[in-house]
Amino acid sequence: MSDEEMMEGGVQKKFCYVNRTAPYGTVYALEALEVVLIGAAFEQDVSVVFMDDGVFQLAKGQDTAGIGMKNFSPTYRALEMYDVEKLYVSKESLEERGLSEDDLLVDVEVKTAAEIRDLMEEQDVLLTF
């Protein structure tokens, strides 16, 4: 094992990915998902938060055939296989957008703004997309 690998093995930080943008209109949702997938290999303590328009990333029934772009929404269901299991969705953001947990394509924990605030305060590294 190299020094670098040993150092990485010795440090576990709390990483929180905060998704605030809708998919397809911009690339941020897709490239954020790529960071989460790569990051999973580093065995950190990972939380993924979906708030504001980020909740639209998890909408069921996405069909991108007509826009010629790849539908990457099934990948959210694969996160569990990468041991990314802490998915949190903002209650207020869902309500503002007329959505409920049943409209989402993956199991999540719905949290209030106050709960998400507390969660973010516990993190070491925050990445917003």
Partner: peptide
């Protein structure tokens, strides 16, 4: 001064 940074984009 603060122990972490949240960059809202």
């Amino acid at each position: 001064k603060f122990d972490r940074v949240q960059s809202w984009l």
